[in-house]
Simulated assay, not measured.
Amino acid sequence: MANRTVKILASAGLMYAARRYFRDWGTTKDESGGTLPGDELLSPPVLQATEGVTIDAPAELVWPWLVQMGQDRGGLYSFEFMENALGLRYRNADRIHPEWQHLDVGDTVRLVPPGWLGLPRGVVMTVSEIAAPSLIVLRAAPPGLPWEMVWSFHLLPHWEDRCRLLIRSRLGLRHPGEFVLAEIVGPARAFVTRGMLLGIKRRAQGPTT
């Protein structure tokens, strides 16, 4: 019993250390620690992570890729083979689809199909704020999810022909057990987010870069 407890604590410690390392992957201290639109939607205690990437394309060319995100639209541009191995039925787009270029406050973005892991509606987030070509804020809350969650996407111009893409996730926590669980799954979330950032960067920059 003691041996098992030691193994569990060691595993949890390793995952926590990994999460601490990857939590703000690719961002500066100002980017990860600063306030961004959408933060005000959740009050503490909140578990927050911010990741970013520099894209060699102006924000206007990156924006259409963000607008068409969704499990039933353009995908999330991450690791499709892994998403589908989990039964998420993703097909990540490699071009801009005009039919998916409208997104407004109150619209929904589906992340997980209905019925996945017993969730009748899957996972759907609602657009709380949108400002082209710089900002999309998505929000989910009970009863659709067990927790309140905000997922925001920020395009910041960097000279005339480049931009920074920041993805911030904020998870509202109510009980100590939720905090522990969120810490443990943090590295997996960071892995998928990094895949998204690199997938969007590759598509926006085009095949010649």
Rank of each mutant, 00 (worst) to 15 (best):
D72P: 05
L155C: 04
T35K: 12
V67L: 10
Q48S: 08
W147D: 06
H97T: 06
W147G: 00
Y16N: 09
P114L: 10
S78A: 15
R91P: 02
M149F: 04
T208P: 00
G26Q: 04
A140S: 15
G106V: 10
R23S: 10
P207K: 09
H154K: 03
P114A: 08
V150D: 00
L76D: 09
T126A: 03
A182F: 04
Q68A: 05
G115R: 13
G206T: 11
F22Q: 07
L76P: 00
P142H: 09
V150K: 01
A12Q: 11
E40N: 09
V150N: 01
L155F: 11
L197E: 03
H97K: 00
A190P: 03
A140H: 02
P98A: 11
E83T: 04
N92A: 07
G199Y: 04
L135C: 04
G75Y: 02
W25K: 05
D104P: 05
F79D: 08
T108I: 11
A93P: 06
W65T: 08
P176H: 02
A2F: 14
V112D: 01
L138K: 01
R73E: 14
V180N: 00
K201T: 10
R110W: 05
I130K: 13
P187R: 03
R19P: 00
T50C: 10
